[in-house]
Amino acid sequence: MGGDKKARSLRFEEFAREEGGLFDLLDKIKAEYLAKMGQVKPGDAKTLETLAIGARVADQLAAQVRSVIAAGEIEAVNEDRRAKMNVTPIRKSI
């Protein structure tokens, strides 16, 4: 992903953490998958596996969003440290 990590982080965080935002949506989807797992007939391993995969995908999506948010927070801390130390990052061209 190119662009400004801090700006992207702020956009993702605002969208994800708002009331009814992405994290709430992913939690709801996961809960629905888990609830359906409780209704599956014994011995229906294929359906259980499918529902478990769906719940795991919801967790992975949430983890990716948290990763984008964290990357922006790390970039902000790094910029603050560079500013305090009066250091400019070196950009190498290839």
Rank of each mutant, 00 (worst) to 15 (best):
A55R: 05
G2Q: 11
I90H: 09
L48K: 11
I94S: 11
Q64T: 09
F12S: 03
T88H: 07
T88F: 03
Q39W: 01
V65G: 04
A55H: 05
L26P: 06
L10F: 07
F12G: 00
P42R: 08
K36M: 09
V77Q: 12
K6R: 14
E32I: 02
L51S: 01
G21W: 06
I74T: 13
M85V: 05
K36C: 06
G38A: 08
A7Q: 12
R8N: 10
D4G: 05
P42I: 04
G54S: 08
G72A: 06
G54I: 04
V65I: 15
L25I: 08
G21V: 07
R82L: 14
K46P: 00
L25G: 04
G2N: 11
K92N: 10
Q64M: 13
T47K: 13
S9A: 15
F15P: 00
P42Q: 13
K5W: 05
P89R: 11
A58Q: 03
M37D: 02
G38Q: 10
N78K: 09
G38F: 04
K92A: 10
K41W: 00
I69K: 02
A63D: 14
D80F: 07
K36N: 13
A31M: 06
L25Y: 07
V40E: 05
A71H: 02
R17A: 13
L51A: 02
G21I: 07
R56N: 14
E14C: 03
A63Q: 13
L34N: 09
Q64L: 13
F15D: 08
R11I: 11
T88E: 14
R91P: 00
R8M: 13
N78D: 10
K6E: 14
G20K: 06
T47L: 14
N78C: 06
L10W: 01
R56Y: 11
T88D: 12
G72I: 02
R56M: 10
L10N: 09
N86V: 09
E13Q: 15
A7N: 07
D24P: 01
E13W: 04
Q39A: 15
